[in-house]
Amino acid sequence: MSLQQKYSKEIKQILSKYPPEYKRSAVMPILHLVQKDEGHISKESMQEIAALLDITETEVASVVGFYTLYQEKKAGKYRMQICTDLPCALRGADDFFKQVCDHLNVKDGETTEDGLVTVEHVMCLAGCDRAPMFQEQGPDGIKYHEYMTIERVDEWLQSLKQLEAGEKR
């Protein structure tokens, strides 16, 4: 199904925010829709968005490439994006990152064997007072998880696994 069919209501609502002659502004919100549902932005989606907004495919690709929340490659269903910037690192984020990698048996940027979680380190997320913290990027959009410990990461992983089991049933 084409994006326009799949998201006709959302796209109409997004376009209504901007002057008709500047519909290019809709490129980022539409990319967010695709990213959320598909976990990455495919070349086909970029082509469709370009046609929809009367811009070139290259222009869409340049936006996708510029912003870190648009992923060109598929990865785990959930991305666990841990902030290791200065304020978080002053509160143990580097150690936390290592612990998580060891615990899940992955390196930076790798995905767990079951394909559920990709671990990566990211820049400041405005959660410096609640470090260690990470954001979850996945089918539910973006959520913050703060005041983190390995125990709390495990609780989070369990809840994801339960969700998965429920969906498969």
């Binding site: 500047y22 502004s25 980022m28 967010h32 907004l53 936006v63 912003y67 870190t68 400041c124």
Partner: peptide
């Protein structure tokens, strides 16, 4: 969508224009 530079006001405007 994740870019520190967009806090700079003219970069923000570019971003808001879909660039």
């Amino acid at each position: 969508a994740g870019a520190y530079i967009c806090g700079e006001e003219t970069a923000l405007l570019e971003s808001l224009e879909g660039k």
